[in-house]
Design a protein around this nucleic acid. Sequence first.
DNA 1: TAGATTGTTAATCGATTAACAATC
DNA 2: TAGATTGTTAATCGATTAACAATC
Lengths: 214, 214
Amino acid sequence: MNRDTKVPQPTLERLATYLRYLNTIADKDDKKTISSADIERATGINAAQFRKDLSYFGEFGRPGIGYDVRELQKHIARILKVDEVQRVVMVGAGNLGLALLGYAALRRHNFHIVAVFDNNPNKIGWRRGDLEIQDIQRLREINESLRARIGILTVPAFAAQEVADRLVEAGVQVILNFAPINVRVPKGVVVRNVCFIQELTVLAYYLSADENQQ
Amino acid sequence: MNRDTKVPQPTLERLATYLRYLNTIADKDDKKTISSADIERATGINAAQFRKDLSYFGEFGRPGIGYDVRELQKHIARILKVDEVQRVVMVGAGNLGLALLGYAALRRHNFHIVAVFDNNPNKIGWRRGDLEIQDIQRLREINESLRARIGILTVPAFAAQEVADRLVEAGVQVILNFAPINVRVPKGVVVRNVCFIQELTVLAYYLSADENQQ
DNA sequence: TAGATTGTTAATCGATTAACAATC
DNA sequence: TAGATTGTTAATCGATTAACAATC
C-alpha cells in the first residue's frame, strides 16, 4: 500500500481504462476471475503497472488466484467515485453541447446532465429531451438546489474564462473544458481539456512526408 | 539539435499548445518577438522545456533577443504538418459526427473534412453543408481519388474495429478515435483516442469525498 | 506439495528542469 | 560593454518495469 503518496495522473487514467474493460467483460460472465497478465493482454498495459496502480488504493487480489472481476469493478468505480450518480451542468448549447446531450453513454456511466445554460436569448427556453436551455445568468441560483459539482464547458474560446469563473462560483469542483484555451481556476478546482484540433495536430505530425501527391 | 532521437509524445503535445498560443497573439501584432520566459508565463510550460522541445527540430531563436513570433509560428506549423490543408474522412454520421462537421474551427486549422460515411441506409444520401453522407461500403473506392490520410472515427464502440480496418485499407495513416475502445491497427498507423467518459471519470476522482449531500 | 499470481521493492528508463557557456 | 536570452549539458525527478518473497 501506498496511501498519502499523491496518486500519479497516469495511474488515474489507467484506472479509468481498466474500469472500462472490466465493464465490457463483467456482463458476459464466463470469467469470474482475472489476472494482471489478462489485463495486460486486453489493454496493452504492463501487468506490473496494473498491480502497482492498484497498490495506491489497497489490496484487491489474491496471490495465486487473481482478481474477482465484479469486485474489482466495484472497487475501481468506488475509487473513481463513479459508483453513484454524479450530477453535471453544461454551459454552451451549440453544436457540440447539444451532441453531448444526446450522448446516451454519459448517463450509462452515471454522469447525469441536470442543466444546460447558454447566453443566447434565441436558445434560452428551448427544450432538448427533458432539459430546458436556461439563461447563464441563472447558473449560480439554479445550481444552489441542483448542487452539481461537475461542469462541462462547450462555449467558444473567448467566453470560456468567464464561464469557468461562473462555474466555480456556482460550486463546481471539476471542469471538463472543450474550449481551446487554458482557463485559470482557483487552487482545488481541477480542469481537464479536450481539444480535437490539438489531437488532430499531433496526429498530423505522424503523416508521412509526401503531403499532397500520392 | 537532437535529430534522429525519437521525439517524445509530450513534446508534440506541447508543440501544439505553443502553436495555439502563437496563433492567438500573431494577429494582434503588438509583439514581434517572444522569449521562452514569455511562453512560460502564457502557457505555464517551463521555459527550459520549451527550448528543449524546439531543440529536437532546430534552432529558431536568437540569444539575447528571443523568437520572432511569425517565424516561430510558421516553423511549428511546418513541423506539425498543419501548414497546409490536410484532408480528413469521417466515419459515423451520428450526433457527434454531425456536430464535428459543424465545427468551424476545424477548417480554420487546415483540417478539411472531405467525406462522411455511415452504414445506415436512412442516413446515406443526406446532405450536410456541401457534403453528402455516403455508404461506408464505398469508403475505399471514394478515397482512391480523395486521398485523405486522416480519419475520424465517430461510430459506436462495437463497430469501431471494423471501421478502423476499412480506414487503414483505404489509405488512412492516422486515426482520431472517439469510440470508447482501443482499436488495433498495423504498425505505422497512429491512433489517438478521445473519450469524454474517461475524462469525466478521472475528474470525478478529484471530487471532494462528501458526495451527494452539501 | 507444485504452480500461479499477488504486492512491493529495487532497477531502469525517460522526461523535466536547473545551470551555464555562447552569443546577440 | 552590460544585459538578455538562447541551445545544450548535466542533475533531478518521477514513472515504468523487472524481479522476487509471500501466499493462495
